[in-house]
C-alpha cells in the first residue's frame, strides 16, 4: 500500500514539477511573486481545450503555448515592467489584478463549469509491478518533466540567451551595462514561463481529466510557489525536487493523516519549512548591502 502511495505521490509530483519549472524561471529572474502565472497559462490551456475537437492535439498544444507566450509578454510589458522599480507592494497587487482579469476572461468565454478533458495523445493503460499499479500516463509525465528540466538547464548554460537570463537574475543593472537587452530577455522569460505553464497545465488536466476556470490559481500558482520555494528559488533541480516533496506531502497526508485537512496540513508543513529553511533545499547565494 505504501509503495502505491509513493508511486502516486511521485506522479503528482511530476505534474507539479512541470508547473514549477516555468514558475521558477520567472520567479528566479526578478524575484517578484507572480500571482498571475497560473491564471495566464490557464487561458492558454482553455484555448487548446477548445481547439482539441477539430485539430491535431500537438498543433492545439502549440497554439495554446503561443497564446500563453504572447499573453504573458503583453502582461509583463504593460502591468509589470512599469512597476519594476516601485517597491514590493505595487507589482504584487498588479499581478493579483491580472490574475483576476484572466480568470474572468475564462469565465466569460468558457463559463464556470468543469469540463471533462482528454488530450487524446496518451494511450490509457497501466503496468502492474508486484501489486503496484503504475499508469502509463504517470510514466510519461515523469519522463516529460525530467526531459524539460534537462533541456532548460542545457539551454541556460550553453546559449547566449540563457547566459543573459542568469546575468539578469544576479544583477539587473550590471547586466544592462554589459549590453544585455534586459527588457527583451525578461519579456521572453515571462513568455517562455507561461508557455511551459500551458504544457504543465494541460498535463495536469490530463492527469485529473478535467479542466475548469480555477486551475490557474489554486492548482497552478499556489502549487508552483510551494514547489519552487521548497526546492530553492532559481534552481531547476530544486523546482523538481520541491514538486516531488509537495506531491509526497499531499499524498501521504491524505493517506495517513486526514484527507479533509490535507491542504491545511500541507500549508502548515510549508510554513514550518520556510521558517526553518527559508533559502530552500538548493539555494542561490545573495547578501544585503549597505
Amino acid at each position: 500500500m505504501f509503495l502505491q502511495h509513493l508511486i502516486n505521490a511521485l506522479s503528482v509530483g511530476a505534474v507539479y514539477a512541470l508547473l514549477a519549472i516555468g514558475y521558477n524561471m520567472v520567479y528566479g529572474v526578478l524575484e517578484k511573486l507572480n500571482f498571475a502565472h497560473g491564471d495566464v497559462y490557464a487561458v492558454g490551456c482553455f484555448v487548446t481545450f477548445s481547439l482539441l475537437g477539430g485539430m491535431n492535439p500537438i498543433l492545439a498544444i502549440l497554439i495554446g503555448c503561443c497564446v500563453g507566450f504572447i499573453l504573458n509578454v503583453g502582461v509583463e510589458r504593460f502591468a509589470y515592467r512599469p512597476l519594476r522599480n516601485s517597491g514590493r507592494v505595487a507589482p504584487t497587487i498588479s499581478a493579483v489584478g491580472i490574475a483576476y482579469i484572466m480568470r474572468n476572461i475564462i469565465q466569460l468565454i468558457w463559463g464556470a463549469e468543469t469540463f471533462a478533458f482528454d488530450l487524446g495523445i496518451f494511450k490509457a493503460g497501466s503496468i502492474n509491478v508486484g501489486g503496484v499499479v503504475i499508469g502509463t500516463l504517470q510514466i510519461y509525465l515523469f519522463i516529460i518533466a525530467v526531459a524539460l528540466m534537462v533541456i532548460i538547464s542545457l539551454a541556460l548554460k550553453y546559449t547566449k540567451w540563457g547566459q543573459g537570463i542568469i546575468c539578469i537574475s544576479q544583477n539587473i543593472e550590471t547586466a544592462a551595462l554589459m549590453g544585455i537587452p534586459v527588457n527583451k530577455v525578461i519579456a521572453i522569460v515571462y513568455g517562455l514561463g507561461a508557455a511551459l505553464g500551458v504544457i504543465g497545465g494541460l498535463l495536469f488536466c490530463q492527469y485529473y481529466q478535467f479542466i475548469f476556470m480555477g486551475i490557474g490559481f489554486a492548482y497552478g500558482t499556489m502549487k508552483a510557489w510551494m514547489a519552487s520555494i521548497w526546492g530553492g528559488i532559481g534552481s531547476l533541480k530544486g523546482a523538481i525536487v520541491g514538486a516531488m516533496v509537495l506531491g509526497l506531502a499531499e499524498t501521504m497526508v491524505s493517506a495517513y493523516i486526514s484527507s479533509t485537512y490535507r491542504d491545511a496540513f500541507v500549508w502548515a508543513i510549508f510554513i514550518a519549512f520556510i521558517i526553518i529553511r527559508p533559502q530552500g533545499m538548493f539555494p542561490a547565494q545573495g547578501a544585503e548591502k549597505i
Partner: peptide, 12 residues
Amino acid sequence: LIMGVMMVVLML
C-alpha cells in the same frame, strides 16, 4: 473583473 482592472490601473 472590475476589481482586477482597478488593481492594475491603480498600481500603474
